[in-house]
Write a protein that binds this DNA or RNA. Structure first.
Lengths: 340, 340
DNA sequence: CACCAACTCTACAACGTTGTAACGATCCGG
DNA sequence: CCGGATCGTTACAACGTTGTAGAGTTGGTG
């Protein structure tokens, strides 16, 4: 059985409060007493009971991270970044996964369940939530910070990447190198405020700015952004016979799936088709060829979001007005978009 | 402010204990009372306080999963499987990461910290722990189940893959196809009971059985099994000029890093060099060429481990003697080891 | 030397929950 | 219709910790 303050106090011949004071560095303690207590602590192997501490302070030391499937490497890396940032604040992370097939209602349920778990706060990387669902979040009884999507004027803090600008930059990167028929892989039909919608917008903006036409046949909708989706969509385009000389994939996994299909079809990257992804996953440095991509500032997103959440937790009810932060992105040029 | 049993009790006009009884499905409650209480719970938005529960009863509905870096795709997929299995038992999973540079002492600290969090049990996927450290685990005050490594006669339940046998089968797979100079990537110098040591043993057994010599130059030590390690080790072998016609990588990430370097060097897979990995990651189906690998039975490992842990948690102090389970593996043949 | 301030320590009450023991009410068999 | 068993509910204590209030001691000042 683990020892408690009582055991230590008995052994040291003082009250439990004095032991507590020693542990919490209360200033007014005679050196002799402190030493006695410290010896008793060492002797009993006392460790403070976390549950009791938390009960007293009303905290759990736990935050939830609600996000899509960990099998998606981007989110695994995000989870890693969040856990590292949380650990720096002494927090543990409870991960709750959203499945793509749940839809907005199911997704809100997961968030709800995460809150029910009894955590100090929730980080929420939106997957399918729509603008009109956001109001639901207002009722959350714990601090909530959104990651990764852009929802304007929401009731919560919000840390996001520059989806539109980055997608535009990726597309421009291809255009600058001479590509004019650029396929976009990963669009979701009808979606506007999700990553898919925003990246599609960036893509269209770049085309427009360059005076290039938008061709629906180059933007087949559908997919959950796994490698297999990239492969499927690429095959679909090849089979359709539509002409193209570059690919902007909405994430790296899709890009890699697509690249595989291109190579299988005898097309050379970047000679016949240039391709750029989005996310800057570790593995994009080791593929054949290496993949150009967008570094969306994932680590900074994680750190900022945890920072905000901790602030909100400490602030209690009040706190600053909802903040909206966009972290900077970077175009990472590698072999898959080289000229020639 | 979050509501408590007192608030609910006041609203429902009963004692707090009755509310507690309703929540914990105590059988003897009048339907009318139950309904009153449930309505009050809904009205107040009451959520049990985890810390108080833990303090009183020692249960939290939380288990820890201590494991290496999520960036390692194998572990991300394992975490997913564990979370799915845990959810089926109504448990939430707290993930704690071990860093490779922490060493055994740091690793035990993470396990210790995980226990301190106040969880009902711990799943522990060993990274650097050595045989002599295992004794430390005996003192764990909560049930603990080990995953993935083989440590004989430990004090805990243990669910593992057939590292030696699978590695041997992978090597034999290459030998059967005519390879005789097989490089092994991912060995850790001096390690014996970790995955690296066991897979190395399987490799050596296969060579021996086939009457092939063991050549140290084909087994460069070092690495944390990321893609970059595979690339580095492969480059090292190429630079050394030693002859080889096949590669057995100790995991898929290493295999993919190595494959990239081979192709860069103008070697064709499988024509010039055959290559097989280990883990059966999703992406091995989409690389160019597709990667032959070992399916180590990851999902079954996760399910079995959670099963064992739940049993131990419910059994309390006693329970069955420590169990040792090995799940079956499978050689997955793809393009990278084709003949010709 | 009286008195106030600072120092050192302690008793007690909470935090929110659940186990224990016990209460009155109801039901059943004889 | 009485006595014991069961039902439905409650008061109280306890889990291990920390905040509050205050007691006793020491030291310095007028």
């Amino acid at each position: 059985m683990a020892s408690t303050l009582h055991d230590v106090a008995r052994l040291a011949g003082v009250s439990i409060k004095t032991v507590s004071n020693v542990i919490n560095d209360y200033p007014h303690i005679r050196p002799a007493t402190r030493e006695k207590v410290e010896q008793a602590i060492a002797e009993t192997g006392y460790r403070p009971n976390r549950a009791a501490r938390l009960l007293r302070s009303g905290r759990t030391g736990l935050i939830s991270l609600v996000m899509p499937d960990l099998r998606n490497v981007y989110f695994a890396e995000l989870a890693d970044d969040v856990m590292t940032a949380a650990a720096a604040h002494g927090l543990s992370v409870l991960i709750e996964q959203i499945r793509a097939d749940q839809g907005p209602a199911g997704e809100l349920e997961v968030v709800e369940a995460a809150i029910q778990r009894g955590v100090d706060g929730v980080l929420y990387s939106v997957l399918a939530l729509r603008d009109e669902d956001v109001a639901e979040l207002r009722r959350a009884p714990v601090p909530l910070v959104l990651l990764g999507e852009r929802i304007f004027g929401g009731p919560t803090d919000h840390v996001t990447m520059q989806n539109v600008e980055a997608a535009r930059a990726a597309t421009e990167h291809l255009i600058e190198r001479g590509s004019t028929r650029i396929a976009a892989l990963g669009a979701h039909e009808g979606e506007v405020i999700g990553s898919a919608g925003l990246r599609l917008r960036g893509y269209r903006e770049a085309l427009e700015a360059a005076g290039l036409p938008f061709d629906e046949r180059l933007v087949p909708p559908g997919g959950t952004w796994f490698r297999s989706d990239g492969a499927r969509l690429m095959r679909q385009i090849l089979d359709s016979g539509v002409e193209f000389d570059a690919v902007f994939a909405f994430n790296d996994a899709v890009a890699l799936g697509a690249m595989r299909v291109l190579q299988e079809a005898g097309l050379r990257v970047p000679h016949d088709v240039r391709i750029i992804g989005f996310d800057d996953l570790d593995e994009t440095r080791y593929t054949m060829p290496t993949l150009s991509t967008i570094d969306p500032g994932r680590r900074l997103i994680a750190e900022t979001a945890v920072e905000f959440l901790v602030e909100r937790i400490n602030a209690g009810e009040g706190g600053p007005a909802p903040r909206e932060v966009e972290v900077p992105f970077r175009v990472v040029e590698r072999e898959s978009t080289a000229i020639g």
